[in-house]
Every structure is written in C-alpha cells, then in structure tokens.
Design a binder for these strands. Structure first.
Lengths: 266, 266
DNA sequence: AAAATTGTTTCCCAAATGCGAACAGCTATA
DNA sequence: TATAGCTGTTCGCATTTGGGAAACAATTTT
C-alpha cells in the first residue's frame, strides 16, 4: 500500500497510523473516538486503542470525551527549535535585521521538500504575516516563496525534480511559477544575483527578498527573507537596499555556523 | 506487560514504542539507529523501521546517519498553544501583568499531574528563569511551584493522592514539601488565602506567588504566577502587592473564559 | 420511555511486527 | 594497504499483536 517511488524501506503501519491520529487531532483541534475512527476509516475500537496509548504516553490529553494534543508538543517544539543550527546562529541576526529594516523577517529551513520556519520576527512597520498564523502547514511549498526559491536554487537539480514530483507546483496567485521549465530559469537567475525575489507569487500585495544560507561544503541549510507590502517594495529598495541587508544577514549567519563547525570537526 | 494500577484500557505496544523513540530523540538531541536500539533495548532492524516510518510521516528528519525530530513539532506546538483556552484568554493578561510588575510571569496548565507552561513572559526586571530553559520537562512536578500548589489546592483530594502516588514528592531544595500531610495543610492554607507562595521550594533564591484559574463549575484549569529574587520578594510586596496583582490577573482570565463558555453553551 | 448517540470492552484470527543474521559501506588501526 | 570493527540497511520467518465485529454501558435526543 505505502510503496514509494524508490524501493521503500520498511515502514510500520501501526506507527504510521499513530502519526495520522496526531495529524487528525491537530487538524480537527481535538476529536472524539468515533470522529477519529471515521476520519481515518478504522474501527472504533482501534481508534480507541490509539488514543488511549497516546494518552498514556502523554502526547494526548482527554477532556471529557474529547481528545486533544497535549502541551508536550509545545515542549518538544521548543526543544527542536533551540537545537536547530539556524536558530542557534541565526536568531540574533534575524532580530537585528528586523529592527534594522522594520519589516517582517523569516528564518527558514527546508525539510522533506517543504518550507519550515524556524523563527520569525515582525519589525516595527511589519505588514502581511497575518495570513497563515493559524493554518501554516501542508501548503508550505518552496516554489512560491523567496526563501524557498533561494533554497531550491542551491539544491542539486535531481533533488529539485524529486521535490516537484512529490509536491507539484501549486498555483497560489497569478504570478506563481507553475511549470518546471520556468522554475529552473528562475533558479538560474537567483543563483546569479545571489538572492531570490517573491513578486506576489504566494499572496497578492506581498513581496519578499530571500538569501540562502549555506555551510562550508556549499550545502544549503535554509534561507533568510525580508517581506512587506508591494507598495513599499519597489525600485531601489526592492532591488538594492533590501537584497543588501538580507545577503549580509545570511552571510553573517553562514560565518557563525562555519566557525562552530570548524571548531567541532577537530 | 503494561498493566497499570486501575484496570488498564488497551494500549498498542507499537505506538508506545514509537513515542519512546520520539522521547529518545529529544533526550539525545538526535541519534543514530544503533544508539536508539540500545537505548530502548530493541533490535537494530526494529529501530530502523521505527525511524524510517517517522521520517516518512515527517516527524523525523535524517541528516547523514543521524535522525532528529523535525520542525513539525514546532508547528504542532504552536497549534496546541494557540488553541489552548488559557492562552486564548490569558496571554494579554499575562503580558500586562509582566509589564506592570516587571517580574517573570507564568501561565500554567496541569496535564497528567505535571506542570505545563502555556506561556511565559519576562518583565523588565525579571530574574531567575534561566534555570530550565532547555531541560524544562520530566521534573515539572506540581508540589514545589506556586502555580502547582495553586492548582493542587483546587483539585479533589483523591486526585491529589493519585498524582502524588504517581509522581512522588521530589525534594528540590531544603524548603520543598516532601510529605503528604504537610502538603495537604499547605493546600488548605492556599485555599483560605486565595494564593500560593513558593518560598524557595524549587530553586534557592527564587520566590513566587501563584493564583488558580477556575471555570464556572469550579474546575481548576491552571494558574498564573509572578516570580523573582527572594531579596525583592519580602514583606508587603510578597504578601500584599504581588498577591493582589496575581489574583486580579487570574480573575480577569477566569471572567474572560466564563463569558466565552456561556456564549458557547447555548 | 424509546431510540440513537458515543465511548468502552471482549474475543479471535489474520496480519504485522520483532528478531537474528547476512550484507554493505565507512573509518580506524595495524 | 589490508584488516578489523564500527555503522546502517535488507531479508525471511515465527510469533505476537493489532484489527474488527459485536455486545455493553452511559448519555443524550426525540
């Protein structure tokens, strides 16, 4: 059933289903046994067993007859973030960039071919992140964001093809790049000028500039972006000032990472 | 094997083990197959299967030969927090209390008999939360914090006994309450005066004042606390001013919750 | 008061998992 | 450079475990 493209390593159905239960509880914001059972198309007794086990393991809490994800996830999330390389070396840089630019700043990592924000800060005049505060997930593709394109530009071509095969090229606005040919051209441009521009490709009225963060081997780890209203993001500001700030911030982060890498690898 | 005190509902060992894998990855901050296998005392091939499944489900990422928890947990954590009643109604109150008092303010919920912080803010003169930024978990018991005691004071006695049976009364400092008798007396005091005091019971040099948050039924949902250095937390400040602020904040939160409950239950 | 929910428990068989062992790939060591 | 000792990965088989149907309990609705 779960046979993937490459010869699939073994997967445990029970574990996979437990993950589905977690996803379902998140999607529904809590649910009862029957609800979970119908949602995942399994027997009530099975759903009950899954929920009960997750509860005993403290990943789920039960309020009355409703099951919810527990605050354990908040702790795990914090833990993951604090240990992440980009957070460790990028947080202060991002904070500074936000106060310097006054705009919204994102620190992003790629995982499983998707965009994952490690950290984000709103500068004083920040605009435009109210979209996706709640539902930020599932549609976090790489091809319509500045950070995403900055990352894609520095991944091996084969990897980019894999990612597009897996996730497709969803159209979010009329500016979204929706075919592979155009995407590769765009990535070429990104590589040449050293930064990526999101020209209302995800949300109308919002532009962004993103620069990649790479380690000493040239492997891309993520990206930093500055975003704001299209009205403000034009001309010199969009094509000179912002790129300059963003690239600088990315470079500083890279330097910090490479220094600690160098000291560790001895 | 996993027969618990009360007649145990069914649990799935595969799911339980998957949870253990997640806990292990968190505890070790990433690990290899062999490491996980020895840690959990299972076969290498099994550990591999678990890790592979969690990776396919995007809860785990693989960097070289190291497996780490993915940023998915960061998203789930945020989602859980944003949906939590206490956060929804308490965040603004806590923010205000922090700027008003200048101290550290915690918004806490009880889950599985443990202390779980939903939100916390440092006021301008805040001191003393650097302990447990990283390793805050596992030892988060209720009996040595102001929030924990505030909550315990309003749980049914039987529930308190259950919790103590399960988690014990770990001694953290010389002031920690370590026997049930004394604990019940303390909880009585807390109930009578309406707030709990943590007198260096968790960490030497830190005192705190906590007040419970209860819904219209009288069920306790959590607590709010203000904490700071013992040098500053004395006399009138400790026994009048801070309790007044904390109780006020808790009451405002309660009111907000009860209003939305009332409107929903019709 | 009856009917329709939902959650919980039981039991058995098919199926999924755990394990051991073999294999592959890499690193350190002689 | 060869060898030993690590890793991670794959395979096949015996066995345990989880899935499901149905009965039961506990509410809620009609």
């Amino acid at each position: 059933m779960a046979q993937d493209q490459h010869r699939s390593a073994r997967t445990l159905e029970t574990v996979a289903r437990a993950c589905d239960v977690i996803d379902t509880l998140d999607a529904l914001g809590g649910a009862g046994v029957t609800e979970v059972a119908t949602e995942l198309d399994i027997a009530k007794s099975s759903a009950h067993a899954y929920l009960n086990t997750l509860r005993e393991k403290r990943f789920v809490v039960k309020k009355g007859h409703q099951y919810h994800l527990s605050l354990e996830f908040l702790y795990l999330g914090k833990s993951v973030r604090h240990r992440h390389v980009l957070f460790a070396h990028g947080k202060s840089v991002v904070d500074q960039l936000a106060s310097e630019s006054g705009e919204y700043v994102h620190l992003m990592a790629e995982q499983h071919g998707l965009e994952r924000n490690v950290y984000k800060v709103a500068g004083e005049n920040a605009v435009g992140d109210t979209y996706h505060t709640a539902k930020e997930r599932k549609t976090d593709f790489l091809h319509f964001t500045s950070t995403g394109k900055a990352v894609l530009a520095h991944l091996p071509e084969s990897r980019v093809r894999d990612i597009v095969d897996t996730h497709g090229l969803l159209q979010k606005t009329e500016n979204t790049i929706t075919d592979l040919e155009t995407l590769f051209e765009e990535l070429e441009t990104v590589r040449n000028r050293g930064y990526a521009v999101n020209d209302e490709e995800e949300v109308k009225g919002i532009r962004a500039v993103g620069a990649p963060i790479r380690n000493a081997n040239g492997t891309v780890l993520g990206a930093i972006s500055v975003s704001g209203p299209s009205s403000r993001f034009t001309g010199e500001y969009l094509h000179k000032e912002v790129p300059h700030m963003v690239k600088e911030a990315a470079n500083v982060t890279e330097a910090s990472i490479n220094m600690s890498d160098a000291s560790q690898s001895l």
